[in-house]
Design a protein around this nucleic acid. Structure first.
Lengths: 322, 322
DNA sequence: ATGAAAGCGCTAACAA
DNA sequence: TTGTTAGCGCTTTCAT
């Protein structure tokens, strides 16, 4: 219709500089009139790129929906990808079936790369990406024993440590912790930070109770902490949601926050502002986490060389619970 | 490697019956040894099918993550699609930019069809699918003035009506309602059901307060209801989350549930079992909703003729809040 | 700056 | 039952 060859049309569509202004005009108006849209499959076939990346969450959907962290990360990843005009495919991979389906999806070259979130120890996903050389970026450092894929992480250790130091500065001396799942890097790193923060004080075994990042889990853990350590005067929780649960348990036991027991959470989710009293917490730059993951992945997808790891800082947000 | 033609390989891969057992064996073992996986782009190019469908949510992600409904629907859609070995692409389309990107995605023939959730009045999506003839199924009836795409819905009117009738049967006479957003079919239908349930009693304007499906919105609405109608003895909330908010407001005002004011919610989400007292609510078959949407869409994608609408029944679940 | 031509990896009609 | 052949819609050398 524009009276030019397919090659020229292709050049115009892809913004090649070597097209005469006249031809460009002609093609563009023809495109508009025809409502022409390039066929992605055909394009993918020749370019070997699909302009699609996957965001994979290895958690049951219940966690996904209760954990405020995911909402933020999904939003920021989606926004960042939108800027690059790349489509996001969102995949749940918590069951073996889901993982198998996703693996087929990858082998089918449906995606240019993947963002992997919340990996547990023994998760087979990193191995797959490492083997197939399909670009992938982890959110959070790889679990022990996992293939060493590039990752973006927040300084969980430093963040947890700052929480404990804050508690110490406020004069607390019997500081317990409710940890995250111990088969995840986040869970371990925050526990390490807690131990490091305590320093010469050293933690007693009975001050450390494992949690599972849920509110109910936090409540149970706090109850146990209260039984094991009646004199406890502060607790560092590895997530805000668990901190809320801990505050429930504290209220049920008749302990005042922060007078009797100070509480510090982790995440600085929306939740934290609305608890009574408002929750002191460790803010992690979740939006930046998503953004950096995308940047790194896109660099890799384009064949570039990115850093093997990116570490983002945390900030302690002091509110009334401590 | 198997010593046969590409066509035969293709037949084996696609399970054509007209392949000799010998050739099939040969091909299959070659496939295994080579780790061969068909290239989806090439296949899509010739078959005009991508084996991918999109689930589109026209809501800000905040709603998506706070509304338990979405978690269930996403799970059931994902599971149902997995059975058919079709990949789910999850897309947020709440901002004009997101919608534009999604539109490009569709025109690029990236997907075989789409599932559209929670449409508001004036949403441009249905029009696009109607025009491009790309198969689409709505979750919930189309908003007024929208293109008439096939849909799966629950009997919102009947459900709301049954809630009000239940309240009447318990002797309540001054029954208010907290509605959903009035630019959504669900919001309107549940309001209609409320009005119908009241029957000859007729509702006063001041008994109807608009909500937004959030907990905070429910709380605000209940507070207003209490001001406008101090004698109110029951409230029907268009969602469980709003009912929880209403119960917060009731507690703050010193009204007992159900003694002073009976509360009925809608959804029968997990929430409802754990409120104090447990919440009477209208159960909608969310899993079936997802399943039926997928079935209908797949029929359409395969060129079949499906029903224009599917309506699923609701059940009243009586608990202690009424 | 432009066009001709090859080819990405697959399926499907047709012939054998 | 099998192979040959054409072609899906695009990008990309390579000439011109």
């Amino acid at each position: 219709m524009a009276g030019v060859s397919r090659a020229t049309v292709s050049r115009v569509i892809n913004g090649s500089p070597s097209v005469s202004p006249g031809a460009r005009q002609l093609v563009q108006s023809a495109v508009r009139q025809l409502g022409y849209v390039p066929n992605t499959a055909a394009r993918a076939l020749v370019t070997q790129r699909t302009n699609t990346v996957a965001l994979v969450v290895s958690e049951p959907s219940s966690r996904l929906f209760t954990e405020p962290f995911y909402e933020t990360i999904i939003r920021s990843v989606d926004a960042e990808l939108a800027d690059a005009d790349i489509q996001l495919v969102f995949a749940l991979a918590s069951t073996p079936q889901e993982r198998a389906r996703f693996e087929r999806f990858c082998s089918g070259r449906h995606i240019d790369g993947a963002l992997l979130l919340s990996l547990h120890e023994g998760d087979p996903l990193p191995e797959i990406f490492s083997r197939t050389r399909l670009p992938a970026v982890l959110g959070g450092r790889p679990p022990n024993g996992s293939a060493p894929l590039p990752y973006v992480d927040v300084e969980n250790r430093a963040g947890a440590r700052s929480a404990v130091e804050h508690l110490l500065a406020r004069g607390r001396r019997c500081i317990g912790t409710i940890t995250g799942p111990t088969d995840t890097p986040v869970g371990n790193d925050r526990l390490d930070g807690y131990l490091a923060g305590l320093g010469p004080l050293r933690a007693r075994q009975s001050l450390v109770v494992p949690g599972d990042f849920t509110r109910a889990g936090g409540e149970r853990a706090m109850t146990r902490l209260l039984e094991q350590e009646p004199d406890i005067d502060a607790v560092f929780c590895a997530s805000d949601l668990m901190a809320v649960g801990a505050m429930d348990a504290l209220a049920a036991a008749g302990r005042r926050v922060p007078d009797d027991v100070a509480v510090v959470g982790y995440d600085d989710s929306n939740l934290a502002r609305y608890t009574v009293p408002p929750l002191t917490t460790v803010r992690q730059p979740t939006r930046e986490l998503g953004r950096e993951m995308v940047r790194l992945l896109l660099t890799l997808v384009r064949g570039g060389d990115g850093p093997r790891q990116v570490l983002l800082p945390t900030t302690l947000i002091a509110r009334q619970s401590s």
